[in-house]
Design a protein around this nucleic acid. Structure first.
Lengths: 231, 231, 231, 231
DNA sequence: AATGAATGAGCCTTCATTCAT
DNA sequence: GATGAATGAAGGCTCATTCAT
């Protein structure tokens, strides 16, 4: 941002801008890009109908800004991954737990992830930004962990597939939530359920990974797994 | 007149109807329900703008019919589940392979699965039909297999979570395909790649399942896993 | 009608034609010309969608036929005016009673008069036919009666105005029925109420007419009025 | 800027709004609610097709506003009913005269009454508003007058019927105008004709009312009638 | 800087009508 | 003689956008 904070009138402009971003986030997440109307967004934000065009050029400009804003929020959470000193299985457990919490935690403004899910189905062009900013580093982090677990002799494509298996288990609860809640109406994603889920996925995955390890690594992993289960 | 007397009066109406269904499938899949226009659908189907109203009542009626049509096609593939005599791990392998093929096979009209992905993000109400008709039985089939593998002493909720882990790995490639192809532009889903993927998921999962087995079952499973890997 | 009754196929055509006329009468009366749809009419008549164009050329042709059919029915009821031998006040009473019954009697297919009311507001061109066929003779009949009551010395324009006053009272209940039932929800137009109404209008009008009589006629009329009230 | 500061921001919006109301009044009156097209109305008002949606929500909203606007104009005329000090027969004369003028005066925008006539045949729901706002008070005013003329001993239902007879005479010229002008092409409703008509109806009705009076009131009325005729 | 009235393209839908059968 | 699938014009309405203020 270049402009100084000397100008009071731009402050209220900024306030309107922020309210628009927040309102747009929720409405885009709930209704999708096309279905969302600028009127709804403006009225929820308490702004004039022309405010969007004024601040963001057009509807698409607002959407891009909202999306990048969501990604920046998401990225902030991932900065707390400085647990590089821990053993790999524990790092995997934390990674899964944090990822699930990010995807499912009902306590957070839900529209971040809904927005992303929509973008997958109906790409508007900002997806590439997202991948570079957030997804690729996140996925690479998981690959590093898996690689550490499997050991250096396992080929890269096997590592990648295993990482995919792990991500898949996590993302599934997010992507297929509408189906899952219909299959099991009792299903909730509170903090405790997310933790239990993370424990399950961790156990399942650490065990699954042993199928791709050299024999020497298996023994180390079995010990780690026992420790994890006792925690 | 060339056509046979199978259904003389409705054959020509049926032809237009079918063209509309096919065109609508592609366009709904590409643009979503709201974004798709009946004009596009009709013009691609070579039909008049009013044909949709005549044959399906309205746009929503057309969509429902298209969606159920896609589901019925999907259901046909599941009829080949008469392998109840096989050992459970082999049944799991076949289940995963068939499911992946169903989700990813590029040889098939691609809009079936895109349509479903959209429905997850933006349910239009036909999702419930789909769940009852197709998803629930399919998921139950997987639960039966997993239960057979884990043995009768494992509680139902553990079985269900394990089944979820397996489904999640499969569905991920489907739901997140736009991201995956961006992460790895080389990625293709031809027949061979699907088979390799199925083998990976089967191995990963059979091994992961052992974490939840009573000790006695683990040995049986290890033997089965070896056999599977040699096949 | 020119065609003979030798052709069975035209008999069923005639049946369809009649069902169409009857269905159209009700639907045109209920919804008006524009609002009525040929689909509704055909489906109520159990006929094909193209039957109207086949039998009547187009929608307007059907309407004209329906309207004339209604008028011919209405005209039939007026044929019972062969009470020319009675004293004028009694003829007035019968005229009013018959007119009210024609307009209001709920026992009859209601659409005759509704159709006519619509034609007043939204003339489709058949109104002129109706006026010549039915209204003008009917009104002339009333003028003759009023003239007989007032005596030969009263000028024609006074006679006409008095006739108008009488017709106005009767027609009001027909034209303004939607308002009247809202003002007085108890209002019904069964046979007894119509008779009471006719008696009131007759008394009110016979008395009102005396204001326009030469003195000599007033006395005659007063006597007649007494007789009528005792009946 | 010339306009005063009475309502600067909405004045130009108000102008378009008023043009729409005026254009809609004429077109609704000429073609009915269904037949009238918003495109016609907008083009006659020199407004955009979306202006109706913007100002009135939808076509029905515009219609309601037009209708109530017409009624409010009508209601203004009724404010001149502060003649409560006059003798009842004179009040009746004024009531009839004002009512006829309201219904027939060609000097006024003609669509008020046409609109109302349409509403009777094809109620759109705003009729109830009209009845409460305008018709019921107006009719009650007439009932009060008639009751004052007939005296306190005459039962309410007789009073109501007599009032109906009077209203019916007036309304007839309004409702049946299309027929009346065809029966008598010379017919005009200028100011003088309306006055003559009012005089006729007043005389006819005051005389007719005597039929329902106790003898004592008749004499009073006869005197009043003479005075009225000499005026 | 910010407003809100006004725009016009485009949406889904309805309708009377036609034509090959 | 009668059908019903198909037509195309036109309807009301929604929407993002613009522009004078």
């Amino acid at each position: 941002m270049i402009k100084t904070n000397t100008s009071p009138p731009s402050d209220i402009g900024q306030a309107t801008r922020d309210r628009l971003l927040s309102a747009a986030g929720q409405i885009f997440a709930d209704h999708g890009f096309q279905n969302a109307t600028v009127r709804d967004i403006c009225s929820r934000a308490g702004a004039n109908i022309a405010a969007i065009n004024y601040h963001f050029g057009d509807k698409q400009g607002l959407y891009s800004e909202v999306f990048l804003y969501a990604c920046s929020l998401a990225a902030d959470n991932d900065t707390a991954k400085a647990d590089s000193g821990l053993p790999a299985p524990e790092r995997l457990r934390r990674h899964i737990s944090a990822f699930l919490a990010h995807l499912l935690d009902e306590g957070r403004p839900a529209w971040h992830s809904k927005l992303m899910a929509r973008e997958l189905v109906e790409p508007t062009g900002v997806l590439d930004d997202l991948i570079g900013h957030s997804i690729r580093p996140h996925f690479q982090g998981l690959i590093d962990i898996v690689s550490a677990i499997l050991g250096p002799t396992v080929p890269a494509d096997v590592v990648q597939r295993c990482a995919t298996s792990i991500v898949g288990q996590c993302v599934f609860f997010h992507n297929s939530r509408p189906i899952l809640v219909r299959l099991d109406p009792e299903l909730r994603f509170g903090h405790d359920q997310i933790e239990a889920l993370a424990a399950h996925i961790t156990t399942f995955s650490l065990t699954g990974l042993t199928a791709f390890m050299p024999a020497r690594e298996v023994r180390k992993s079995a010990a780690a797994l026992k420790r994890a289960n006792h925690a």
